[in-house]
Design a protein around this nucleic acid. Structure first.
Length: 487
RNA sequence: CGGGAUGUAGUUCAGCCCGGUGGAAUGCCUGCUUUGGGAGCAGGAGGUCGCAGGUUCGAAUCCUGCCAUCCCGACCA
């Protein structure tokens, strides 16, 4: 049997694509830069959505929906924020096709009076709307989130990591005071960080972006940064303190208790389907996807092993009991009773798809009252007594969740280095995060990027202050910042 | 958007240099034997050779343009 496998060591990008396609997560579509998220991949995204949505609601937010199209004039109102993606906008110019000799062409008579931009982000349409919602301090805060698709006409795309259209959530909040908005910004950063660590099982560093990396419309951009297995950093979520930029741009004022007109303070925050990419690159191995149990659409797969119809009937009956008891514990379980594939094939297939736990039940097990339990993360196989199996499996799933996180944390610890010389700086950049002194200037940051391709991923929150010398310029520095090559 | 590569069966690829009725493996379908780590044998179905032009008696093969994908750059809240 010749199964083509791509290993991480051989070809990291090839390995990534192989997993995305062969684990049935997504595939390229007929539209340039746009992907089809397949049912199995979408099921994982839905689990992310569910957990995040619960957290948003718990912190007082409500969902709403704003238009896909944004009048072009809105973008000129807050010019700074559009700089970042002005070069990657999809623009709607017409509203009708006509049939010319059997070919559909754009009807030149159907030109829009004002062109519409397919949203790359929704601050403008939302703040245009908020203007009508806010008159007094009693209308504040507004805590709204939307689940939506956005379009950024990327020239170089990669499934999940960077696509022309992607799915995300964007929270947009309005507050009476700067402090309240800052607290909201940080609160949502904490929500993201906790989600990443406890659900995705990826350790992240919370930090603030430097001016170079900041969202154009923001006063401060906070982020969570994760480290992938190839030593590159991935920004996994952002939370912006927008100050009064959008309130000024859209003239959104409110009356305070003291009857004074003031501009509203804003935040926005988002995570996207890019998290799918993070999930793959953080945990998976050369045998395929490795899913943390809390995100796995199928947590347990059961593979029957039999020779005769009689054996099969007896195993089916036993499996029915096992399935019922697992479901009772809230475990999602699939009985792979396809008669068209052999067990070995099924083992390999479910490993490729990252199912955390596999149970195999055969005639031997029926005789002994046992089951073979295999865990995806360690590839370990043990024979377990069927007694109280559902609790044992529940416990095992928790163990796997913890172990996957710990493994990622150990990897990050091993690949995070304090560095004080330029040579060592360049060397350690190859493997992960580098903590080095920086003189605080954009100029130095840009020079370092030119020389090494590395950027400052963030200045960690609550960073330790210590005197030192900038890794490049030698000028005085008060703290180490995190450098890495990034996706 | 610049440089490089690729595009042939569902998939991975050979064929192209040197033009002459499109191949393999795997997957798929049928049957039998199998089933505790990607099964074996036999038979069968499956292709506008990325798209559009051009050269030619004749194009998967040569030429031009376009599209898509991958790699490297530039860009990227």
């Amino acid at each position: 049997m010749a199964i083509k496998k791509v290993t991480r060591a051989e070809d990291y990008s090839g390995w990534y694509n192989y997993i995305v396609e062969n684990a049935d997560l997504a595939e390229h579509s007929a539209v340039r830069g746009c992907m089809v998220i397949k049912p199995y991949g979408y099921a994982i995204w839905e689990k992310m959505q569910q957990d995040l949505d619960r957290r948003f609601k718990e912190t007082g937010h409500s969902n709403a929906y704003f238009p896909l199209f944004i009048p072009k004039s809105f973008f000129t109102k807050e010019a700074k924020h559009i700089d970042g993606f002005a070069t990657e906008c999809a623009i709607v110019t017409h509203h009708r096709l006509k049939n010319v000799n059997g070919e559909m062409v754009v009807d030149p008579d159907a030109k829009l009076e004002e062109e519409l931009i397919v949203r790359p982000t929704s601050e403008t349409i939302i703040w245009n709307t908020y203007k009508g919602w806010i008159q007094s301090y009693r209308d504040l805060p507004i805590l709204v989130n939307q689940w939506a698709n956005v379009v950024r006409w990327e020239l170089r795309t990669r499934l999940f990591l960077r696509t022309a259209e992607f799915l995300w959530q964007e929270g947009h909040t309005a507050h009476a005071t700067a402090n309240e908005a800052i607290a909201e910004t940080k609160q949502m950063l904490d929500v993201y960080a906790d989600f990443a660590e406890s659900i995705l099982a990826i350790p992240v560093i919370k930090g603030v972006k430097t001016e170079n990396e900041r969202f154009g419309g923001a006063l401060d951009t906070y982020c969570i940064e994760g480290l992938m297995q190839d030593g590159k950093a991935l920004q996994m979520g952002t939370s912006h303190f927008l100050g009064q930029n959008f309130a000024h741009a859209f003239d959104v004022k409110f009356l305070t208790k003291e009857n004074k007109q003031e501009y509203v303070w804003a935040t926005s925050w988002g995570v996207s389907t890019r998290l799918m990419g993070a999930l793959i690159m953080a945990h998976s191995d050369d045998d395929g996807l490795v899913l943390p149990p809390r995100l796995a659409p199928i947590q347990v797969v059961i593979v029957p092993i039999y020779r005769t119809d009689d054996e099969r009937i007896r195993i089916d009956a036993k499996v029915d009991e096992v399935v019922a008891s697992l479901k009772k514990q809230g475990i999602s379980v699939k009985y792979d009773n396809r008669d068209t594939q052999k067990p070995g094939f099924k083992f390999a297939e479910w490993e490729l798809k990252g199912v955390p736990v596999r149970l195999a039940i055969g005639p031997r097990d029926l005789d002994n009252g046992t089951v073979e339990v295999a865990r995806r993360d360690t590839k370990e196989k043990i024979v377990m007594d069927l007694t109280d199996l559902s609790h044992k499996v529940e416990h095992l799933l928790e163990q796997i969740q913890t172990n996957i996180y710990q493994k990622a944390l150990d990897f990050r610890t091993e690949n995070t280095n304090n560095v004080d010389s330029w040579d060592e700086f360049c060397e350690k950049l190859e493997s992960g995060f580098v903590l080095a002194h920086w003189d605080g200037t954009s100029e130095t940051e840009k020079k370092i990027k030119e020389k090494t391709k590395a950027t400052i991923r963030c200045i960690p929150i609550d960073n330790l202050l210590q005197d030192g010398k900038c890794i490049l310029s030698g000028n005085p520095s008060t703290q180490r910042v995190i450098f890495a090559k990034a996706y």
